[in-house]
Write a protein that binds this DNA or RNA. Structure first.
Lengths: 344, 344
DNA sequence: TTATTTTACGCAATCGTTCCCGAGAACGAG
DNA sequence: CTCGTTCTCGGGAACGATTGCGTAAAATAA
């Protein structure tokens, strides 16, 4: 059952040296003779010696592992982000530890406490849709845990942020609907307090206003659990289609909501894009092949993951405390397809 | 930068006790007076003491973290499996460390060496499509690392396996095509040496034979990288449609291949299900809404992950070496939709 | 009162590694 | 021949926690 690992002591015993000498020889210290180094290195190779990372962690007070906390792994956007994170972490010799909040604040707090007690060197997080209070994160942050936020960020701490231009993305998508003749544009969104919600809603509203129409708050439906439960989206959609003035287009402000809306419309037999236009944020792989093909706002998820881990490692590996924090804003891509082209 | 953690020494100093007393008090040892226990517990709470898991790992020679090695995270099947793994690992106090092979044997070997040197307690793996030789895994296994295989398994080691009934799944899917009038059924599959390939191909062939037709090997296209590169699938598909006797149905024996085939057919303007029927293994979220809706074989990915971690933890936490290994075979679900219904 | 047991705690080793010191040997300079 | 360097290497503490063993004081028994 035990992984009988070769230690530095084994080498020392084998060669009749002290552990300090072996340790130094392996680290190529100047105070060890070339000859001794050679024999130690050979012996280490022979015995297939691997330094024990746990012992190192104990000494160096770093574990070379970073935690990623997202609401859900099985979501294209997040798994693509994790992919980006892992791609760089791996090359730098870091482990990536994954945790999911399932959009629950309590779970997020628990996860975090657990992760923190596991001595991680840093954290990359997109908060849950229930998370309004940031005390749990602040506590860790001010204790010295490097944190990088992405997607759903908090500006309450002075740290790196990675996100997309949410305002502009929503603005573009809404404008696109308007340009294509849609008049009453409803909006399915996440909890009101999330950064992405605020920014995206602002973009949506601005586009409506810029078209000379007044914003109707009834057309904005907040799904406080981001659509993890299908009934949440269904309820919101039901309210929308039963409005005295039924909207003729929907914009989904996050992945799950967009596809939730699609699912609902299909079930109800409401034709897209004729009776209802549909566009939304999505990083799903097959939006192109959906029926109808879905117009989307695609986020550069992989790049977001890469940026996040790069910024995090910069903090972790910097000798002196970092004072300048970057707020990285990436561009999204508006991909127009059939679900918003009523006149074709 | 440092996470100034409270140690047992701080408590000892604060209370004028020895570290052993504090340690024992925290572990509720019988040889500590109730009074001392109380003060220690209070002090620990006051200082917000958390045991250092690294120090514990060093003593106990276990890290309470398990590694998961898959070819790709950003793949619905695998992210669902990881979801299942994480759901149970979390409750048992284990960390999940993720790594990706990207279908590369070399990368798999590297990942594994890296993970092993990070003192993991166990490994859950689905090998890369390039992996034929299992020596790298055997080496770790015989050194005492508990391993559970899932999906793409190897029977060369005496350990737990988690998979689906691949033979039967392919048989059912192929039979379904036959029943729906398809005569020339081609097959897009992964590397020939993978367990899933062998079993699924066997099921496919058996179904063909049972229908009284002779198997034509030209109709079986092996994609040695599982379709991670789009051109691989395209090449295979091109060969298939240029066959003197063009097939009238395709069965994709893995997620990426199924959707790759769909993508190809759409691009070529070959209508589904009329000119070409299409069915395949897929755990994608939106196969239902594809155009046309896709008939699929769905694997119980979440449950597979749960089974895998349960079996792994059983091995890890067992006192005595386990001799009996289970070979868990789960059932798949055949979901018939429009892509295989020519006559509707 | 004395002997014996129980209670309640401290000392020190241990896990694998690093690193500060100290120290012997060799060597050249004077 | 002696002194100061330089080159090599070993001893031992430290990281944070657990644990076997030893022991003083208190409690009990004789």
């Amino acid at each position: 059952m035990k992984f009988e690992a070769v230690t530095i002591k084994d080498i020392a015993r084998e060669l009749g040296l002290s552990t300090s000498t072996v340790s130094r020889a392996l680290r190529d210290s100047y105070e060890i003779s070339a000859e001794t180094k050679k024999t130690v290195l050979e012996c280490a190779k022979k015995l297939n010696y691997r330094p024990n990372p746990i012992a190192l962690s104990l000494k160096e007070k770093r574990s070379r592992s970073i935690a990623v906390l997202v609401c859900e792994i099985a979501n294209s956007f997040f798994s693509q982000v994790i992919n980006g994170i892992e791609s760089i972490a791996y090359n730098k010799g870091y482990n990536v530890i994954i945790s999911q909040s399932h959009e629950s604040f309590q779970r997020e707090v628990n996860d975090l406490q657990f992760l923190a007690s596991r001595s991680i060197d840093g954290l990359i997080i997109s908060v849950s849709s229930e998370t309004e209070n940031m005390e749990h994160l602040k506590k860790l942050f001010y204790k010295g845990l490097p944190i990088v936020f992405f997607d759903r960020v908090s500006e309450e701490m002075d740290t790196h942020l990675v996100m997309v231009d949410n305002f502009n993305s929503a603005y573009k998508a809404t404008s696109h609907l308007i340009e294509n003749g849609y008049k009453t544009i409803a909006c399915l969104t996440n909890s009101a307090h999330l950064s992405i919600t605020k920014e995206r809603i602002a973009g949506y509203k601005k586009a409506i206003e810029d078209s000379g129409v007044q914003v109707n708050e009834d057309l904005i439906k907040y799904c406080n659990h981001g659509g993890v439960h299908a009934d949440e989206t269904e309820k919101a959609m039901n309210e929308l289609i039963n409005l005295e003035k039924r909207p003729d287009a929907i914009i989904g402000l996050s992945d799950k909501l967009t596809t939730g809306a699609l699912r609902f419309l299909q079930k109800q037999g409401i034709t897209i894009p004729k009776e209802m236009g549909l566009i939304g944020f999505s990083n799903g792989e097959f939006t192109e092949f959906l029926n109808p093909s879905l117009s989307i706002i695609r986020q550069p998820a992989f790049e977001m993951g890469q940026s996040a881990i790069e910024l995090l490692l910069e903090v972790i590996e910097s000798k002196r405390p970092i004072k300048e924090f970057t707020r990285k804003v990436l561009e999204t891509e508006l991909i127009v397809r059939n679900s918003t082209l009523r006149n074709h």
